[in-house]
Amino acid sequence: MPLYPGEKCIPGKLLPLKVINHKNDCSLNDFRLYKAYKGVLGMNVKIEAWTGIKAAVPVILAYMPLGLAFGVLANEVGLTVSEATLMSALVFTGAGQYIAIGLLAAGGSAFTIIMANFLVNIRYLLFSASLVPHLKKIPTGLASVLMLGLTDETYAVAAVHLRENEATVPYLAGLNLSSYLSWVASTCLGAGIGHMIANTDQLGLNFALPAMYTILLILVISSRKHLAVAIIAVVLCLLIAFLFPSTLGNLSNIIAATLVAATAGVMIKR
């Protein structure tokens, strides 16, 4: 897409490098364009990708035991190693997969299994939408594909990172892909040789996720208003879970609490 003189420059729009180098074409926005271009594809690829992979370490630590356990359970329910691995590779949703093998074992229909998965995953509509303002500088197709790697954990890590950093493809790919690969690999391992691996609770890994949520929550709270929103969300989600225990099955209590708490955050006087 050549840029003719006088054409409006849109920061973040992907342009061929030679256009950016032609000062006359677009002098006012040159620097911003260059930054945007660099942010999408440029020389920081390695650093950004490593930042993403390093940020994924706690996620990976938490996924290993969960993936192993899923592999073992899937195996017990009658799935072969390749079937269990295929499910993790194409689906990548912890809770939904546990529900699926539970329903498979109980003889549930395909429709029930797929609907249950949809219900468990509705919250990602909200998670994905909340990242939209951060992803403006990434081509939409690429950004949408990157969102396929969203989980509670990668979302939390990314949301904290994006408060102070620009979203880049290598960062998001590094974070999401390494988490994804650990999930698929540990599923394969669990389905294959899982019965030989000792109880990972003894290693304390059952607290990996709660510990990660805790530090991310601390990092994301930057003002009293954020603190107020967080407290409202905690009280509401517990209240809903207490009154309607079934909401814990698909975490819809978290969605309901988030919708109300975020609205309260907007309405509280600054």
Partner: peptide, 22 residues
């Protein structure tokens, strides 16, 4: 602004659920 409150609310709820309803 509303969307910016989603991460703290989600994280707080996740902490609460993972600790108090493990």
């Amino acid at each position: 602004e509303w969307l910016s409150y989603v991460p703290p609310a989600v994280l707080a709820a996740l902490v609460a659920v993972s600790i108090l309803a493990p």
